[in-house]
Amino acid sequence: MAARPEAAALEVAELVDHHCHSVVAVELADDALAGLLTESDRPPAPGCSPFDSAIGLAVRRWCPPALGLPAHTPAADYLARRRELGAAEAARRLLAAAGLDTCLVDTGLTAAADRELLPLTELAEATGAVVREVVRLETVAEAVTAGAEDWPRAVGEALAAAAASAVAVKSVLAYRHGLAAPAERPARTAVVAAAGAWLHGGRGRLADPVLLHHLLWTAVDVCAELGLPIQLHTGFGDPDLTLHRADPSLLTDFVRAAEPSGVPLVLLHAYPYHRQAAWLAQAFPTVYTDLGLTASYTGPRVAAVLGEMLELAPFGKLLFSTDAYGLPELFLVGTAQFRQGLGALLADWQAEGACSAADGQRLARMIGADNARRLYAL
């Protein structure tokens, strides 16, 4: 049997990052910087470093050349060079090297008081990309000060106002209660009672399931009126999340119930439930998905994981995102990993006779940018 020819990665050029965050604007200590390479908010175990991971290897593969160093430079030398350049110059180089066309930025995630994030205008300047806002539902709801009786109406009005200039809204229901949202809208009496208890308790973090489910259905109504998608965190994240409750298949009843609205539901990240997300995208016309930060965290396995997602996900339903937060490195790693992984996967398909060269280039354009442009009307 003749050996299969070695595949050359196809070019994945233009990228629309349909879900990301801003970056820290100040100089970080080495430990603080390394801590942003993990989803954990805990310090590493003794003798362990976030650089000794698949994402750590990816950072050392893709980022040193942007700072004038060879690929795979040791972490200590990389960090020293970063300090030498300064946070602003390092960020400028790393973000420019990512080569993004458009960034859709979730503004609901804030930094610590000593780690201010770049405003959207400055992020746009640093990336050279068009930057648009994604509004986080829970952040909007937590700012509403109306009394319990007026809370349902006030939340709808606040969300409509916040989303008027945005390209999407986003829910972190997976973190607050889990994704098992019921198909039925909560009764108004239940919402008012839950709002009263939340207000009486001093407001704070919105975690009551009745209020969260009311907020999600409110988003369906607002987004149907404005023509916007709803993004939902699914899959892995920081320790605030209970992983099995973030399985996107738990949303199935809600997806069916919301389908008549026509509002697109975009499942973010998904891993290790990326096959469930792919099934939902195949089964329901309103569902879309991405691999998100999984592309960065899986390191050299990115092509394999993308292949698992594309076993079922329609090619017009898969989007690109970095979910980068805090570190400009995560923008460059996210884009480089995705380009390399998708390019290698499609080249393998072509070498195996599964698709033509024209098919491969067309799919790369769709997944990298065109699907997002269509979905978000960019």
Rank of each mutant, 00 (worst) to 15 (best):
G237T: 09
W198P: 03
R256N: 00
H200R: 15
V220Q: 00
L268W: 00
A180N: 13
A195K: 08
A224N: 01
H213I: 00
L206K: 14
A219R: 08
Q276H: 15
F284T: 02
A197Q: 15
A295Q: 06
A181D: 07
Y297C: 02
E225W: 11
D240M: 14
W198I: 02
Y297A: 03
H269Q: 07
T286I: 03
A258H: 07
H213N: 14
L226Q: 11
G196A: 14
L280A: 08
H214G: 07
V210I: 15
W198H: 14
R203D: 04
V222E: 04
P182V: 09
V210L: 12
D238M: 15
A183C: 10
A246D: 05
Q276V: 06
V287Q: 03
S249F: 08
D290I: 03
A224F: 07
V220D: 00
A219D: 09
A295C: 13
R185S: 11
P272L: 04
I230V: 12
L206C: 12
T242Q: 12
V255H: 01
V191T: 12
R256W: 01
L241N: 11
P264W: 03
G202P: 12
H274Q: 14
R275Q: 13
L243W: 08
G237P: 01
H233T: 00
V263E: 08
D238Y: 15
L280S: 09
D208V: 06
A257G: 06
Q282T: 01
F254H: 01
A187W: 07
R256D: 02
L241H: 12
L206D: 10
G235A: 11
R203W: 13
A195I: 07
A195N: 09
P239R: 09
R185V: 10
D247N: 15
P285N: 05
H274V: 01
T242M: 12
V263W: 07
H213Y: 13
F236H: 06
L199V: 01
P248K: 11
L291H: 03
L232R: 13
A258V: 03
P248E: 09
V287K: 07
F254T: 04
V191F: 04
T189K: 14
C223V: 03
Y288M: 01
H233N: 12
A283L: 04
E259L: 02
R275G: 01
V222L: 11
A207V: 14
T242P: 08
P248A: 05
W217R: 11
S261L: 05
A219P: 05
L268P: 06
P229Y: 09
R203E: 00
H213V: 10
R205Q: 14
A194G: 08
G202E: 13
A278K: 01
V255C: 07
T252E: 12
A258Q: 03
H214C: 00
H213A: 09
R275N: 03
S261Q: 02
A187T: 06
L267Q: 05
W279T: 10
T286V: 03
L291N: 06
G196P: 05
G227V: 00
L241G: 07
A195V: 08
A224H: 04
G227Q: 08
Y297P: 05
G237Y: 15
A283V: 02
H274A: 05
T234F: 10
G202Y: 15
A258M: 02
A270G: 11
L232T: 11
A193D: 14
W198T: 04
V255M: 02
E184A: 15
A190C: 11
